[in-house]
Design a protein around this nucleic acid. Sequence first.
RNA 1: CGGGGUGUAGCGCAGUCUGGUAGCGCACCUGCAUGGGGUGCAGGUGGUCGGCGGUUCGAAUCCGUCCACCCCGACCA
Length: 576
Amino acid sequence: MRTSRFPLFTSKETPADAEIVSHRLMLRAGLIEKIGAGLYTWQPLGLRVMRRVEQIVREEMDGIGGLEVLMPAVQPAELWQQSGRWSLYGPELLRLQDRHERDFCIGPTHEEVITDYLRRELRSYRQLPLTYYQIQTKFRDEIRPRFGVMRAREFVMKDAYSFHLDQASLEATYRDMHGAYSRVFERLDLRFRSVGADSGAIGGSVSEEFMVLAESGEDEIASCNACDYAANTELAASRPAVPSAAGALPAEERATPGIHSVAEQCEALGLSPEQVVKSVVVMADGAPAVLFVAGDDELNLVKAAHALEAEAVRLAEPDEALAATGVPRGFIGPKGLPDGLRRVVDHRAAGLANFSSGAGRADWHWINLNWERDAPLPETADLRTVNAGEGCPRCNEGQLEIHRGIEVGHIFQLGTKYSESMDARVLDEDGDLQPLIMGCYGIGVSRVVAAAIEQNHDDRGIIWPAPLAPFDVAIVSIGADRSPAVAEAAEQLYNELRAAGLDPLWDDRDARPGVKFADMELIGIPHRIVVGDRGLKAGTLEYRARTADEAEEIPVDQVVSVLRGRIGSPSSSSAG
RNA sequence: CGGGGUGUAGCGCAGUCUGGUAGCGCACCUGCAUGGGGUGCAGGUGGUCGGCGGUUCGAAUCCGUCCACCCCGACCA
C-alpha cells in the first residue's frame, strides 16, 4: 500500500479526553474515530490490526474444532424471557421495539440465541460435543464508557459456546479452550496471565479470566510469587490469619458523640483499625443484611454476594440501613441488632478478640467486645479483599502480589443454567432426557488491540508486536520527486517486498522526511527502510527496527532477504 | 442514578465575570524558499459560538429550558 492512496489521518494534537495511552495513540494514529460515547469507527489502519487479531483467534478456534457461525445482533426478547435474563439483566441491556411494538434487545452476549439454535437442530446426543463460535459486534450500554475501545459500548467480541452430555466432556473442551486462549495471547506477543474469576451475570461455576498485564487495567489480580495460584481480587483468597489468643478483657461502653468513621473511632478510643470490627449494611437482592469485617479490611461485594447466595449485592443507602437496623450509620455493631436480620462475619473479623464496634445506639461505641461472650458469632465467610504480601492460600510458602490487568478473555463452565431454563434437552443412550451441559468462552477482540498498545508503546507512538502490525514494513522514500534514482529504487523495493509475501507500506508522499518518520513511528510499523540519495550512492538502504536505537546500512540487493529473516523470526517480533 | 465540569473553525483553546456583532495555535489551500527528524516566509479558505425560548436597541456573553460529551461517586458501612 502507498500512503498516497491510504490516508493516515494522524494527529500531532493529544486528544483532550483520552486518559490512557492506548486511547490517545489510537486516536492520534488514526486507528479509530469516535462518533459518540462508547461508539467508534474503525478506520482502515485500525481495522487491519483488528483483522489480524481475528485471524489468529479464528485459527485457534478452528484448531480445537470450533465451528464458525454468525448470529443476529438483534435478538427477540422472548428468548431472554425464557432464560430469565430479560428481568435480571439491568440497564446494560439495550432494549428496543420494532414497528409492531415487539420487544428486542441488542445482544451483549449470545447464550440465548445459540441455545435456541441447538435445541432446534440437535437430533441426537451422538452429535455431541459441539463448539460454535462467532466474531461479531456486541452492545452493552455501559454506565460510563471510557478509555476508548477498552470500555466501549459497541465492541467486537469472539464468543464461543460448547455443548455436552456430561461434565467430563465439558471439562475436556474447557481445557482445550484454555490452551487455545493461551496460544492466542502467546501468538499476539502479549504478557498475560490466566486467573480464577467470578462468573458474574453470565452464571455458572468454574471460570477463568485472561488478563493482559498493564498498569492501566481496570481489574486487580492477586498472584502467588511461589506457585501458580492467581485470581481476580474479586475472589482471591489468602492464607487465614491466626486468630487472636488474647485473654478477654471486660467490655466497656464509651461515649463517642459525632464519631462515624473507623479512623475517627480509632482516634477517639486510642485504637488501631485492626482492633475494630466494622459493620456494613448491604442489600442482597433487595433484602438487608449486616456484614462484619475488620476495620482495616475492605468488604468485597462479590464475595458478599456468594456468601449471601444473592444475584446482586450493593451497599445500603443510609435510609435503608437505618430502616434495617434501627441504628444510625456509624454506630451499628454486633450488639443491638434486630432479631431476624441476616448477618455474616468475615473469618478474620471473627478471629478478633477485644475489638471495638458501634454500640447499636447513637453516639456510643463498645471496646473489648468478644464474640459469643458479648454477641453471638454469626455464620462466617470470606468477605474481605486480599492485600499484597499476604500468604498464598494454595502453597503455604509464597506471598501474594497484586497486579493490574486488562480482561481480554473469559472462559466459563456454565453447566445447565441456560439449557434448563430454555428447555434444551437431548435423549441420552439410556433414553433419558438430559439438559445440555454448556460452556461459554469470550475474547474481547477490539479490546485486545487497545491492550496490545498499553503494553507496547514509547513516547513516539505505538510499537506493534509483529503479529498485530497493520503493515510489516515501512518504506520511506526521501526526495523521490527530485531523484529518479530514489523513485526507482523505492518502487523496486516495494514490488520485491510484495513479491516476497510481505505487506509493505510505502510512504510516497511529497512530505518532509521528519513528517514521514514521525508518522511511521506513531502508527508503529515494526520495520523501516529509508530510500534516499545518501544511501543509494553507497549502494545501501537504511534499515531500522521500531525498537532499535540505531539504524544500520544494508546493501540494496540484500534488503529483501534480511527483512524476510527479521520479520519471520521471533526475536524481531517481540517488541518492547 | 447522584455530584462536578465542558460545549466557540476539522483538532486544541481564548473571549463569557463587565452585552456592542468572534480570535489564537495546529491542520487545510496558494506562492516562493527549503529538502534525512513534525522547515521558513507571505497570502488565503473555513464558524447557525450545542439546540430552543426569553430579556435587550443589540446576546458567544444575561435568564430559562433541553441536548450532547467528559470527570468523580462504598470504606461516614
